[in-house]
Amino acid sequence: MLLATAVNFSLTNAASAQVALDIQYLRQEVPPPPVLSNLDRIPEDLGIAGGEVGLADNATTGRFMGQDWTLTVTSVPEGGDWAGAVETALAESPLLLIDAPRENLLAASDIAGEAGALLFNVAVEDSDLRAGACRANVFHTIPSYAMRTDALVQMLRVKRWEDVALVEGQTPEDLVYAEALRASLTKFGMELGSETDWTFDADMRRSASAEVPLLTQELGEYDVLLVSDERQDFGRYILYNTWLPRPVAGSEGLTASAWSPSVEQWGAAQLQSRFTEHAGRDMAPRDYAAWAALRSLGEAVTRTGSATAPDLRAYFLGDEFELAGFLGRPLTFRPWNGQLRQPIPIVHPRALIAQAPLEGFLHQVNELDTLGQDRAEAECTAFE
């Protein structure tokens, strides 16, 4: 009788605590840019699949906590009404994942600010959005360019590859990434020895062996060649075609990335297999960012017992929030700019080489803050 009474009491409490959470995933469709190779196809569910796996993880725990999780995906076609889509999503939920270019993210932040909503950026890596252009209602689960380039330059210092050359692509993403590389080299006491621009638009499948040696011969002596090619366009043709036999790193070769199929330690293989079973492909950085956003919400709702944006925001910025992210260390949000602190895997396509922050790079509070903008560097006043 006592057991039956306890069970009934528990079920009554669970029913009274039932909370429905509808997470809105907003994606701005962007036409794929022209590239030199057709080998790499952009998955139609890029990012979305990661959110779906995160949702399933939340639902597993949520069933016992009186939580009912749903994920609503809205894709806005090119030239579509982005502002209208944001307003429609806000009418349904104050919790939004934004998978869209920079200008769309900022527009969504402005609209959501009036509604007191909380946004998660899962796509835009621009470092200034974690600095002077930060927004108080935007949390970032995708690492910034600065976090990725800081991780890579830490690796260069450890390897003592101090003579550095650069081949810089000319797309907007390439230019921003190259600038982040220069800033990271300066941050860790290194200099860029020589550089050149990638200006070829010919079919590299036929001419790489002739053109790349001539291009890289002009760079002189160097220990490592950095490549800025964020669209993964021409960088593949630089490997093994350089004038000098030297390692290639940056956007190609040895890369620093939010996530990689080669990450298997710390239980990551289990996440990788669950994702592959769900999506039929490998997990990409944007998928991981969406997964981390959903799991952060799941952790916060469970710990606080609240689903309101102000309560969740306060918990994210406090000392108690931690997320087990399969990267060997607890993930937390930086209270000065809303960036998710996370280790950065340094990989090539077949193996994990290291994980930043590397040994010897110390910080007075958290070694993860050696990656990207620290509190003093960020100059983000929106979170004060």
Rank of each mutant, 00 (worst) to 15 (best):
M65F: 07
Q67G: 02
Q67L: 13
W69D: 09
W69A: 04
W69Q: 07
T70H: 14
T70D: 15
L71C: 05
T72C: 01
T72Y: 03
T72K: 14
V73E: 14
T74D: 12
S75F: 00
V76K: 09
V76G: 07
V76R: 07
V76T: 13
P77D: 13
E78T: 14
E78N: 11
G79V: 11
G79L: 12
G79F: 08
G80L: 07
D81W: 03
D81M: 03
W82H: 04
G84C: 09
G84M: 06
G84R: 10
A85N: 09
V86G: 09
E87T: 14
E87Y: 00
E87C: 00
A89Y: 06
L90P: 02
A91H: 07
A91W: 01
E92A: 15
P94V: 00
L95A: 02
L96S: 06
I98P: 01
D99N: 13
A100V: 03
A100R: 03
P101W: 05
R102Y: 09
R102S: 12
E103N: 11
N104Y: 11
N104W: 01
A107L: 14
A108I: 06
A108N: 06
D110H: 03
A112P: 05
G113S: 13
E114Y: 02
A115P: 00
G116P: 02
A117M: 04
L119Q: 08
L119F: 06
L119N: 09
V122Q: 07
V122I: 15
A123Y: 12
D126E: 15
D128E: 15
D128I: 14
L129K: 08
L129R: 09
A131E: 15
A131C: 10
A131R: 15
A133G: 02
A133F: 12
C134F: 10
R135A: 13
A136D: 15
A136F: 05
N137L: 06
N137G: 05
V138M: 10
T141G: 06
T141V: 02
T141K: 10
P143M: 06
S144Q: 10
Y145R: 13
A146Y: 12
M147N: 11
R148C: 08
R148M: 15
T149Y: 10
T149S: 14
A151W: 12
A151T: 12
A151Y: 11
L152V: 06
V153I: 15
V153G: 11
Q154P: 04
M155I: 00
L156P: 06
W161Y: 06
W161N: 02
E162A: 11
A165G: 03
L166E: 08
V167R: 07
E168L: 04
G169P: 01
Q170I: 04
T171G: 08
T171L: 05
E173D: 12
Y177R: 12
E179N: 15
